[in-house]
């Protein structure tokens, strides 16, 4: 199989500076292995999704644990999230090239978490516009060192600073982009799952890419504000979509029914944490008891629930 990234780099190589810019990206992975295309599901006309593994990032899954996808318009393609490593990004690019040769005009990042963004580097040679929430670049930069260390721990020395491609087209509020007779509505949210959550609505099919504002089956992780997230869900449920691509879980789910589990979980965490606070309970008591009735409803519950409770407690103790 040809290496898609390498092929494109040769083309771009006509401009000498560009070779230098992309040298590391092209050489490193392609000399090792060419990534096989990701197995995508077409969940609606022109909307393709790769369902991430319900696991922590490992060398075996190459960080491919988030749902990522692309939408094909008449004139161009938009990628929505790129996975947790260059390799996943390359495999996504290979999958796109099995479907269409149209240019990749946009790579949209729904937020800064590494499992959604570290594949960006695979698309640099396509010269798309990288799009993200206005808060994303500083938030990613602040975390880059620890994300890189973690990626190297899991994936080895192949993980590099070059993987941190930060969007330059920044969205605050609402914006519509066009793929050729196909409009995508981008909406930036106030702090919720993170401080950089951006959603993408494909108006043609009523498909909402919610990023990690919506978790299905995998336990939600609070890295922003539980109060803000509940407010975001209230706003999200009014989005006129037919289906949602959650950040984690099934590739496609009915809308807005898909919000129910997460809403129940977050409301419970907020409510039980407030109860503990009201009766003078400690953080330790909160992490030992809050949310436990949800244990069998979520994957990775034991890895994230107490952490979520810590986030909720240290936020809500200031109410």
């Amino acid at each position: 199989m040809t290496c898609p990234v390498l092929r494109r780099c040769r083309v771009a190589g006509l401009a000498g500076w560009f070779i230098a810019l992309t040298f590391a990206i092209c050489l490193q992975p392609c000399s090792a292995t060419a990534e096989a295309p990701l197995a995508m599901s077409q969940i609606a006309q022109g909307v393709y999704v790769y369902r991430g593994a319900d696991a922590e990032a490992t060398a075996e899954n190459a960080g491919g644990i988030a749902n990522i996808g692309f939408i094909v318009g008449d004139q161009s393609v938009a990628v929505i999230d790129t996975g947790g490593s260059l390799m996943v990004g390359q495999a996504l690019l290979a999958a796109i090239r099995q479907v269409t040769d149209l240019p990749i005009q946009y790579v949209i990042n729904t937020h800064f978490h590494p499992d959604h963004i570290l594949g960006n580097a695979a698309f640099v040679a396509e010269r798309p516009i990288f799009v993200g929430h206005v808060n994303l670049p500083p938030a990613l930069r602040a975390r880059q060192a620890s994300y890189l260390a973690r990626a190297q721990e899991v994936l080895g020395s192949i993980a590099s600073e070059d993987w941190f491609i930060v969007p330059q087209h920044l969205v605050s509020g609402r914006e519509v982009i066009d793929l050729g007779r196909r409009g995508l509505v981008l909406e930036a949210y106030p702090t919720a799952h993170t401080d950089s959550d951006l959603t993408v609505l494909d108006e043609a099919t009523g498909t909402l890419f919610a990023g990690d504002l919506v978790f299905l089956e995998r336990i939600p992780a609070i890295d922003g504000s539980i109060v803000g997230w509940l407010a975001a869900l209230d706003r999200l449920k009014g989005v006129p979509a037919r289906r949602v691509v959650a950040g984690h879980g099934p590739a496609s789910a009915a809308w807005p029914a898909a919000l129910a589990d997460e809403l129940r979980y977050l409301e419970l965490i907020a409510q039980e944490t407030r109860q503990i606070l009201a009766k003078g309970g400690t953080l330790q008591e909160a992490t030992a008891s809050v949310g436990l009735t949800e244990k069998n409803r979520w994957r990775l519950f034991d890895s994230y629930n107490a952490r979520n409770v810590t986030a909720a407690y240290t936020e809500l103790e200031w109410e």
Binding site: A139, A142, S146, S225, G280, T282, W318
Partner: peptide, 28 residues
């Protein structure tokens, strides 16, 4: 691990505005 370099706070501007605020409570 990582506690010393974890990003400061989840909403920088707001945190600065409230710097120095205190609460006192009785634990049960």
């Amino acid at each position: 691990a990582g506690g010393c370099s974890a990003p400061a706070n989840k909403a920088p501007g707001e945190a600065e505005a409230h710097r120095g605020e205190m609460r006192l409570k009785r634990l049960a």
